[in-house]
């Protein structure tokens, strides 16, 4: 199998480990990822706040390049990139005015896009294309006894709910159950981490992270796994600030879901950039039965 791949801006900085571990995990599953040529920022939520059509146009430039490369699908790892790119497709399909404006903007730089490149979250590909049975066959180190709290975040399945339920997604739960983990149930798995608010109104974002960390810990989590660079960063790196604000003592390992899955599939820890985590994951790695 082969997919065209869009890493996203965070994958070159704070979320570098997500990109590295995705590539390593997919290689173990015999999936080749070919990076999209000269991709640009998806625009995230910031562009929508300035000019709507411009946000669709810059997102569509990526999809136009995918089309030009002769591909009909694009694999995305970041929740925010996923929703922004998929939303662009949806609005282009639903609104002829948006379609026309985006076509005009792309035409001004010699590009064209007909709206047909499917945007796929890597989790969607794992569960629905590769399939859990095929994943199970490749597991070499089952995560037996590891209590995993899957954290989906918001833009994994909201607003569109394309491959999973917007309110109660289960793909990540099923994926980690397949890897042999003891998947815990906790009430905050789709609640917001605060996102960019960590920079603009920290106490609000810390409040949200506190609830997430507390409910995961109360559920007995050994590790939280995330599917978005911003979620991962907020939940992991801000634990000391949450502790300071709430008098708590959180020191919970948070990993990209692809890092923990990579371990289960037999990728060496040093190929999964686990040393980039700021809360040590050593005890999680040590607890995986050999």
């Amino acid at each position: 199998m082969r997919y065209l791949y869009y890493p996203g801006c965070s994958a070159e900085a704070t979320g570098k480990a997500y990109d590295i571990s995705t590539r390593a995990m997919m290689a173990k599953l015999d999936v080749e990822l070919a990076e999209l040529d000269d991709w640009n920022c998806c625009g995230a939520t910031s562009y929508f706040s300035v000019r709507e059509l411009e946000s669709f146009a810059i997102a569509a430039r990526n999809l136009a390049i995918a089309q030009q490369m002769g591909e009909d699908e694009l694999c995305v790892i970041c929740n925010a990139c996923y929703t922004t790119l998929a939303k662009t497709n949806r609005y282009m399909a639903d609104d002829p005015e948006v379609f026309k404006a985006v076509q005009g903007a792309l035409g001004a730089v010699g590009r064209t896009y007909d709206g047909k490149v499917k945007v796929r979250h890597v989790m969607d590909i794992l569960v629905n294309d590769i399939g859990l049975e095929a994943v199970a066959e490749k597991v070499t180190r089952r995560l037996t006894g590891i209590k995993v709290a899957p954290y989906y975040g918001c833009q994994f399945s909201r607003p569109m709910g394309t491959f999973d339920d917007p309110e109660f997604p289960t793909t990540m739960d099923r994926f980690f159950a397949t890897l042999g983990a003891d998947v815990i149930d906790y009430p905050s798995k789709v609640k917001c981490c605060g996102g960019m608010m960590m920079l603009t109104k920290a106490e609000g974002a810390l409040h949200m992270c506190h609830e997430l960390l507390k409910t995961a810990q109360d559920g007995g989590a050994d590790v939280i796994v995330a599917a978005c660079p911003l979620c991962e960063m907020n939940l992991e790196a801000y634990q000391p600030k949450v502790n300071k604000m709430y008098g708590t003592n959180f020191n919970i390992p948070v990993m990209y879901f692809t890092q923990l899955a990579g371990l289960a599939l037999g990728v060496e820890p040093n190929k999964l950039a686990i040393d980039k985590q700021v809360v040590s994951c050593d005890r999680v790695i040590a607890a995986i039965p050999a």
Binding site: C9, S10, E12, A13, T14, D38, W39, N40, C41, G43, A44, S46, Y47, S49, V50, I58, M196, M197, L199, T200, K201
Partner: peptide
């Protein structure tokens, strides 16, 4: 502070094509 962050984000993307965090 959010409007400033939003503007800087857009500026960074216009300058580099990607957001330089």
């Amino acid at each position: 502070k959010n409007p400033a962050l939003t503007k800087y984000f857009v500026n960074s993307v216009h300058k580099h094509g990607r957001n330089h965090e």
